[in-house]
Amino acid sequence: MRVGLFVTCLVDLMRPRIGFAALKLLEGAGCEVVVPEGQTCCGQPAYNAGDAATARGLALKVLDDFEGLDWVVAPSGSCGGQIVKAYPELLKDDPANHARALQLAARTRELTDFLVNVLKLEAVPGRFDGTVTYHDSCSGLRELGVKAQPRQLLARVPGLLLTEMGGCEECCGFGGTFSVKFGDISAQIAERKARNVQASGADAVVLGDLGCMLNIEGKLRRMGDENTRVLHVAEVLAGDA
């Protein structure tokens, strides 16, 4: 099985160890992982900003970069959601590429969904001695149905205890360009999320999107919380936390 790893811009630039953790998990499960060197952005920032022309150009590039692979996996619900939901819409007036977009959407999965529902992974290499709480990122939850999958995998991590926080499905306030356009509102939403994380009593908050990670971690640190760890689910599952 040849699997293309869509690394994502944020992972590549801000936290590459998440990409290496995803690679470890996929290869450990027996996949032949292909990481196209020319891959760039999924186009979501342009799409959210209303720049459809730029978003279409990036969509076509992703179609070319990941042509011929059995699956495409992203350690990000937001980038996965862009490929699955937005690409067919962006290319609906281009019959040939619309068909390609539909084919790509059908073989694109968020990482934990792929591990659970395609690979049927029964064991993970990681260990985590402590308590975690899980934040459901908006795009993964609402566009791709990622909810039970990360929790199923975390339940297989030796030493880990999952405790649910209040409002686990509520937005963290990031929302890509939303946090830039509506900074004051975003900050208030992020503070509510951070308070819920703290109230859970967990040693770490775990999630599946780096944008949310950066937003939550930044708010926790600005609130003076230097102890609560903010981790990507791939890091925990791979034992790289």
Rank of each mutant, 00 (worst) to 15 (best):
G224E: 10
I216A: 02
L214C: 12
N196Q: 15
A204M: 13
Q198A: 15
A204D: 09
M223P: 11
L210M: 11
A202V: 08
R222A: 06
A204T: 11
A204Q: 11
L214E: 13
V205Q: 05
L207R: 03
L210T: 04
G201F: 11
G208D: 02
K219Y: 07
I216P: 01
G224R: 14
R222S: 11
D225L: 06
R195I: 07
L207H: 00
K219I: 01
G211F: 04
L210P: 02
R221H: 09
R195V: 10
G208W: 00
G208I: 00
G208S: 12
G208K: 00
L207Y: 00
L210S: 02
G211H: 05
I216D: 02
L210D: 01
M213H: 08
D225P: 10
S200I: 07
V205S: 05
L220V: 06
I216H: 03
R222V: 00
G218R: 05
M213S: 12
G201W: 12
G201A: 11
G224W: 12
A204S: 14
R195W: 10
V205F: 07
G208N: 08
D209W: 01
A199I: 07
L214K: 07
V197A: 04
K219H: 11
L214S: 14
R195M: 10
I216V: 14
N215M: 10
G208L: 02
L220E: 02
R221W: 07
E217S: 14
M223K: 14
L214M: 15
N196P: 09
V205G: 05
G208T: 05
Q198V: 12
Q198D: 08
G224P: 10
M213P: 03
K219E: 10
I216E: 00
L207Q: 01
L214Q: 15
E217F: 06
L207G: 02
D225E: 10
D203N: 14
